[in-house]
């Protein structure tokens, strides 16, 4: 099973559901890594999978842990399915797709938080309500974290604390999440006692 149960936390920490097919004129699906399992489960739940596939566009990329299930996505037979080389190139393609889709489209995001968060950010920026975007977490729990000091974002953070890839400060990873930035917040851990940095623990994998 590739699903993750996140422990209860502060309100800001995103929670995820399970993708459910909903009636719509079109289905836009964005997934990475183990998200492929959720995409397959989504179509398995559809009352008429063939007609849903005929109105679906899937964008997929491998997960940060290397999981690549593109063959299973391609085998579904959606009207359009594209594999991107990375998250940034997937988002580039998504931006183009979003120019053409109409209201009445159902949007499904699945896989890691970094991918789902960034896709959500770009869709939200067009005025689409974030609460109407379906999201299901699968696979890696590595985090996308913004350093609140230099504002630089570090991708695929595994340990807490970690060192900011931009300014080098040692950061404590909070559950405080920004939907607008699609990132968790990292706060300097030795601001008061310079050099007192606890040993990093692998909290996200």
């Amino acid at each position: 099973m590739t699903k993750t149960e996140f422990p209860p936390s502060i309100r800001s920490r995103p929670v995820y559901g399970e993708l459910e097919p909903r009636a719509g004129i079109f289905h836009l699906i964005v997934a990475d890594g183990e998200g492929a399992d959720a995409v397959i489960a989504l179509f398995a739940k559809a009352a008429d999978a063939a007609s849903m596939l005929a109105k679906s566009h899937i964008l997929y990329t491998a997960g940060p842990n290397g999981t690549d299930e593109w063959d299973r996505i391609a085998a579904l037979g959606a009207a359009q399915a594209q594999k991107a080389a990375s998250v940034p190139t997937l988002l580039f393609r998504l931006a183009r797709v979003l120019q053409d889709v109409q209201m009445g489209t159902q949007i499904y995001l699945t896989g890691t938080e970094g991918l789902m968060g960034q896709a959500e950010r770009d869709i939200m920026a067009l005025g689409f309500p974030h609460s109407d975007i379906q999201k299901e977490h699968r696979g890696s729990t590595v985090r996308r974290v913004q350093c609140v000091h230099c504002k630089g974002v570090t991708e695929n953070v595994r340990t807490d604390p970690f060192q900011c890839s931009h300014c080098g400060l040692h950061l404590f990873v909070r559950d405080h999440y920004s939907r607008r930035l699609a990132a968790f917040q990292g706060v300097n851990i030795d601001a008061e006692d310079r050099g007192q940095v606890p040993p990093p623990v692998e909290r996200f994998r």
Binding site: I25, L98, V101, Q102, M103, G104, T105, I123, L126, G127
Partner: peptide, 11 residues
């Protein structure tokens, strides 16, 4: 009308 509004339209 409802079928030809760009994503991000509010009604």
């Amino acid at each position: 009308l409802l079928s030809r509004q760009p994503l991000g339209t509010h009604l």
